[in-house]
């Protein structure tokens, strides 16, 4: 692992709930090196998903700095942030978030529609991504014709296809049984170890966290410790 891919400096994030201002993150500072695989754990409300959304560029901090691959994303406007996400981030969600009307390959192709690639180039990239997740034979199937594990593999292929800098995984195995969950986590591990992808994953599941290189514990908006 080399220098920090993700730099979080004194980040505060607060929301307005009703009439109250609730601060979720209290001056959080964190470095995640290139090629790391980090599990974020903590009780509900500890701010782990908030941190994940900030690092993934889905949200902006109230104050503080966030730098990903040398870009200060806390300073980007929403349009710039959307374009930045398209190029740099692959998302994997707990409930897969596939488009039900599209086949697996069309789902995987979606992020490539934001690039200048030709249809032929897109087809090629989609085929590679589906091969990486082991679903070449399911390319023409729609989500409802796939199992939960297969759906999550399609979602991972979609996250990978544009070769992003960072993979952001929000409870990627939260909806899966143990065995399937382990397969998915194994896949993420391969992507990290063999393809060098930097992965940040939120999870409730200590077993899932074991697949990461390290686990960060959050509580009440602050980092508790760093477990190796």
């Amino acid at each position: 692992m080399s220098e920090a891919m993700i730099r979080v400096r004194d980040v505060h994030k607060s929301y307005v709930r009703g009439r109250q201002q609730v601060e979720v993150l209290h001056g959080l500072t964190l470095d995640i090196p290139n090629g790391d695989f980090v599990a974020l754990m903590g009780p509900s409300g500890s701010g782990k998903t908030t941190l994940l959304n900030l690092v993934g560029g889905l949200d902006r901090p109230t104050s503080g700095q966030i730098e990903v691959a040398g870009v200060r994303i806390d300073q980007l406007g929403s349009g710039q942030l959307a374009r930045w996400r398209a190029r740099n981030v692959g998302f994997v969600f707990q409930f897969y978030n596939l488009m039900p009307v599209l086949t697996a390959e069309r789902n995987v192709e979606l992020p490539l529609l934001l690039t200048g690639l030709s249809a032929a180039q897109r087809r090629k990239s989609v085929a590679v991504a589906l091969e990486v997740v082991g679903l070449t034979d399911r390319a023409r199937h729609k989500p409802k014709e796939l199992s939960g594990g297969q759906e999550q593999r399609v979602a991972i292929a979609r996250a990978l296809v544009s070769d992003p800098t960072v993979l952001i995984c929000d409870e990627p195995t939260g909806d899966l049984d143990r065995r399937t969950a382990d397969e998915i986590l194994g896949l993420l591990q391969v992507l990290n170890r063999e393809h060098g992808k930097t992965i940040v994953m939120v999870t409730h599941d200590p077993k899932a966290a074991e697949f990461a290189r390290r686990t960060l514990h959050l509580e009440k908006g602050q980092l508790l410790e760093q477990a190796a």
Partner: peptide, 14 residues
């Protein structure tokens, strides 16, 4: 809602 949010997350514009 979720579909649109997902596309927005992937980088689709408003």
């Amino acid at each position: 809602t979720r579909e649109i949010a997902t596309l927005r997350a992937l980088g689709f514009g408003g």
